[in-house]
Amino acid sequence: MADETPSPSDARGSAQDAHPDASASSPDLGEPLVELHGVNKHFGDLHVLRDIDLTVRRGEVLVVIGPSGSGKSTLCRAINRLETIDAGEIRIDGQPLPEEGKALARLRADVGMVFQAFNLFAHKTILDNVTLGPVKVRREKSKDAKERALALLDRVGVKNQAEKMPAQLSGGQQQRVAIARALAMRPKVMLFDEPTSALDPEMINEVLDVMVALAREGMTMIVVTHEMGFARKAGNRVVFMSDGQIVEEAHPEEFFTAPRSERAKDFLSKILTH
């Protein structure tokens, strides 16, 4: 693994002893798809992202974990520029993120996003939610888009709800539709911003199952989540954030069983003790 991703946090020491085989479990990872270099962002006085360097390779599933307020959601949202950044550079598939306008819209079409609050278009049917992007952004024929949307809805297990409105579905169903909506754009990478945090416990697994299947198919994913089960089952790498910094990067199994940094140990002890 001579061409292994250099650990971005090497310079800071906290991860100096990073195991070189952090992502050795998936040797077939491709070229860099999402690259962040020296990314900084402030919300007023609050420094929410501090010198973030991160590379996600094609086919990799990166799990971002950390206490609330650590900047992990902001990081995720910065990748398709729902949040602007103050300094640094973000590249997707080699191209720097455009600042605004049509170029930014085009890039966003290639980056799927799944939100904590689902955000299905409330005035459109489930089917229309999924076909809207392909028809209006990709200019696909509505017949083709509908066919593919139904196939995607079938794949996430909600095909029989196609004609309903979002408010008529359960949270878990809505989130699965949101995944189908993002997949309908044939994205290069999928961002998941705490996709199961707003769900009732009994619905979390139905969403995670879809995500695990997606990961197995080779989708490049950046997932902000606290679901350790998912991280262990589908993640190639865990990034632990705290106070706007990447504190630790490791293979999931290793991160959860033997975290290196004090902050990660402290965090894990709090979420694991019950």
């Binding site: 729902l82 819209a105 955000n119 209006k136 952004v137």
Partner: peptide
């Protein structure tokens, strides 16, 4: 209209006017 609606629209690549 919740902000998330606009964010979801932008996230699938719709520019402002559409």
């Amino acid at each position: 209209v919740p902000l998330g609606q606009a964010e979801a629209a932008r996230a699938i690549g719709l520019p402002f006017l559409p």
